[in-house]
Simulated assay, not measured.
Amino acid sequence: MPKNDLILRAVRQEPIERFPVWLMRQAGRYMKEYRELRAREENFLSFCKNVDLAVKVSLLPLELLGVDAVIIFSDILVPLEALGVKVEFLEGEGPRLEWSGAVSDLKRYDPEENAFVYEIIRRVKKAQDEVPVIGFAGAPFTLASYMIEGRSSRDFRNTKLFMWDREYEFKRLMEVLVDTLHAYLVRQAEAGANLLQLFDSWTNYLSRSDYEEFVFPYVEELIERLKDSTDVPLIYFFKGSSSFLDLAEQTKADALSVDWSVDLSLEAVRRRKVLQGNLEPSVLYASDETIRFKALELLRGMPRKTGYIFNLGHGLAPDMEFEKVKLLVDTVKDYRIN
């Protein structure tokens, strides 16, 4: 067990002296140390696969910010290569993906093709025993969206048309991704991850009825299979959280990570689940006084004394200032539960 097991106690809803804090995208371009390491590799994907560099990047937030958990440095698109999808990252443009568009053309997933991810977990754990290590993956819908769009999108129109017009094919794709992610995340747990997080980053573009039919059954199945396969706690992060919170609560996820559309002071009373979140990331562009005020406002409004993990409602951005991120972490760590 790590010396600082605050986040694990919070997930188990055991007594804690303060709320644990970690941040999505806590290792990234806003850190000069990250940029220096990134410059050693020719492209982002090779950077993710360089175990030595990925371990160093993973540890930066612990060393520089003092966060309560280390999330491994990788990318949600990594397992798609093992399915036969061409994945590349273009500087200044983001990811580009190519495949035939036919589910029958996808290869059967071999988790050994992502052995470097599991090695990163093992090496991060070996390098430090201070805090828990978080493994992660993109959720089925998020990965399906990237595959269908071939890149990021402003409206995910192609994904929706695929979903509506080729319903059988879309659902078959989701089944393939459930199988893939189950194997991928189980191997992360076996490598030593103390927690797992599932990222559903694009569900905010969906109506409730579409989420309920095309997304939720596969999230529910994946989480149930994971809970049957490993006792590692699982956090489910999903955008558009206020629209789907009651559905997400029905899953076997140990914690729900929500965006800033949710009033945590209210939902912490209603919900049995552990909650994570949900400061609006743009607060980090504000003055130091505003950052402190917003963070403390969220913390003071939390009616629970455990079962809560402080985080953002989404990830840190590359142009944020390191000093402001550090201020946020320090503010949360200085707050004591009455």
Rank of each mutant, 00 (worst) to 15 (best):
N4S: 05
D5V: 04
R9G: 01
A10I: 00
E14W: 01
R18T: 05
M24D: 01
R25N: 02
R25I: 09
E33T: 00
Y34E: 03
E36L: 10
R38S: 02
R38T: 15
F44N: 11
S46A: 13
D52Y: 09
L53Q: 05
V57C: 10
L59N: 05
L65A: 02
V67A: 07
D68C: 08
V70F: 11
I72T: 12
S74V: 01
L80C: 03
E81R: 10
S100Q: 13
S104T: 04
S104M: 05
F116Q: 11
I120H: 01
I120L: 00
R122Q: 14
R123N: 03
R123G: 04
V124I: 11
A127N: 10
E130K: 15
V133T: 13
A139C: 07
F141C: 01
T142K: 04
L143G: 15
Y146C: 04
E149L: 12
E149D: 09
E149F: 01
R157D: 07
T159S: 04
L161K: 14
F162T: 07
W164R: 13
Y168P: 05
E169V: 14
K171P: 09
R172P: 02
E175H: 03
E175D: 14
V176C: 07
H182M: 12
Y184S: 04
Q188L: 07
L195I: 15
F199Y: 05
T203Q: 12
T203Y: 15
Y205W: 06
L206W: 07
L206P: 02
R208L: 09
S209I: 15
S209N: 15
D210F: 11
D210C: 02
E213H: 10
P217E: 09
Y218G: 11
Y218K: 13
K227R: 06
D228E: 09
T230V: 03
T230M: 09
V232I: 02
I235G: 00
S243D: 06
L245W: 08
D246I: 08
E249C: 12
A253W: 03
A253Q: 03
D254T: 14
A255V: 10
V258L: 05
W260M: 06
S261K: 02
D263Q: 10
L264S: 10
L264D: 13
E267Q: 07
K273Q: 11
S282K: 13
V283R: 00
L284T: 12
D288F: 12
R292D: 00
L298S: 00
R300G: 09
T306V: 04
Y308S: 06
Y308G: 07
F310W: 05
G313T: 00
H314K: 12
G315Q: 11
L316Y: 03
E323Y: 05
E323A: 11
K326V: 08
L327E: 13
D330H: 08
V332H: 03
V332A: 15
K333Q: 14
